[in-house]
Design a protein around this nucleic acid. Sequence first.
DNA 1: TTGAAAGCGCTAACAA
DNA 2: TTGTTAGCGCTTTCAA
Lengths: 339, 339
Amino acid sequence: MSTRKVVVREDVARYANVSPAVVSYVLNKGPKRVRPETEARVLEAIRVLGYRPNAAARALKLQSQEIFGLVLSTGGNALFVELANAIEDAANALGFAVINTNSRESAAREREHLRNLVNRRVDGIMLASVEAQPDISEVARAGVPVLLLDNGGSIESVPSVGADLEAGAYDAVRHLIDHGHERIGMISGPPTDLSDGREAGWSRALAESGLPEGPLVPATPKRFGGYKAAKRLLASGDGLTALFTSCDAQGVGALRAVHEAGLRIPDDIAIVSFDGSTEAEFTWPGLSTMRQPVEQMAEDAVAELLALRDGGRAPTHRTYPTTLQARGSCGCVDKDPLS
Amino acid sequence: MSTRKVVVREDVARYANVSPAVVSYVLNKGPKRVRPETEARVLEAIRVLGYRPNAAARALKLQSQEIFGLVLSTGGNALFVELANAIEDAANALGFAVINTNSRESAAREREHLRNLVNRRVDGIMLASVEAQPDISEVARAGVPVLLLDNGGSIESVPSVGADLEAGAYDAVRHLIDHGHERIGMISGPPTDLSDGREAGWSRALAESGLPEGPLVPATPKRFGGYKAAKRLLASGDGLTALFTSCDAQGVGALRAVHEAGLRIPDDIAIVSFDGSTEAEFTWPGLSTMRQPVEQMAEDAVAELLALRDGGRAPTHRTYPTTLQARGSCGCVDKDPLS
DNA sequence: TTGAAAGCGCTAACAA
DNA sequence: TTGTTAGCGCTTTCAA
């Protein structure tokens, strides 16, 4: 039964009594026009025979797989999950598929994935790198467009799409200050991430209000990272009353740590995090967070990659404002989840 | 600069002073042996020229893209995220890439994704369907192997990989009974999911202990679904003291609903859910859950698909036991998160 | 051990 | 409007 021959374009042509070229013209709506009757015959043949054009052949001819590669640094991160979903949708809408890969914090794995995707001649790669200054020279040499995700334009010549980290962090910390907090700690990204604007924003908000810089603890952008960091912060007995975390995953971990310590949120410790993922909506209390416009970022990323592939247009760095999603963890009213 | 010609096999052959065939022999380690000196020359040429074999050409020739397709029904589900990650790893280990797609509860979208993947001639499709009885006739007709994920072998002729839902649910509910609960409600999957063993397991555990069937509320397998369902359950004032939810996402939603109602967990309402995703580890209190062996399932799924493609071996239905991950939400000791 | 060459199935330039 | 055909870059059979 597996010997049943697969239908190819020529079978359709024969059945419809036309040349193979005409089948292509119909399928691709060009580049030549086809008489309506002929087209109908071809379509009928395609239907009857159950013909499906072979994507590999098409890819070989067109030098385009109509596939994007996505390389994410971290597995359990809710924002990345949502970003990945949004990217899939945006790509699918344009007829592109997305190959997902996950580096799980390993630079070696990241390189491996990049190599693989380049070999597959994907039409573009979106990279949320493990490193602050990812080495994409090989990818660039192969002529595959790359776009950096969630990275403040760390490489001039490489386009990027990311939230305005500095401004977002500033707004988050200001909000905590407005709630009356004076001793605000921060759980930041991994130490490699030197250029992270979130630290700068936190720091600026504090300085502007004449407040001392609270303790700063770097951690992996995962629930467990936030959990451990918060535990350490709480144990240090620093008189901390509020915490800003660099992502929702860390925020969730911090929430847990505070609960475990028997402290009340937001009364004893208030928390604001960064990302605006759905996960933050269902914690207890709801996790206040700076929402990144994920869908917009995904759409723009896909469009940018396409533009880069087609015309040699200059790479752009896009920065998106975040908006405060105030919930219970900062001391605002905890509205019910809506989604 | 984008006119720089891409290096193809023939360039390598010319540089190494061999025929293109030899380059292939070296690259594929066969089917012919190559003299070591020649091989060294070829390898050197590949290195110098930065040659990368074109995957599309290879796919066309071999009739294999070395890509699997993954079609997931729901976006925000933590288990699916972990399953997807595990599948990527298992596939990558074999040199395969994975194209991820998400149906977001829509059967139409699911069909669309299946069509696309078939057109791309992927080597196999893993499907967590929106429907209880997915229509995969088209995919089967095209000769693309399919495997059902998280679905109790609903179609005889299609291989599947999934947890033992009935036994898992039974164990979960028994555990609640052992904690002394007598009125145990359930939040189940969507109503389409008639064959779901979790309901049966819940029901059997109750019956065996001579307990009445508590209320049963169907919901989407998402946080919001669990949230709404739990709210309804709580509002019904049914004397409920415990809740079993069909997935962690629902469990997280239920947790939130109970907190909002001002009830204590586990004292007023105890909860056990199903999946064992990392998300359940960081809630407050920790969400007790039946852990599915995701990595094992992923590995087996990939292996099965490969076996199906290569030899015409009979499809197998694999069922995996779940293990209770006891935490605070059921009334057990809430150990600290470890991961 | 190496090489020549026949396709894999498709797109699109060119011819009719 | 339709047909003919030359590749796209690779694998592998068959011949040397």
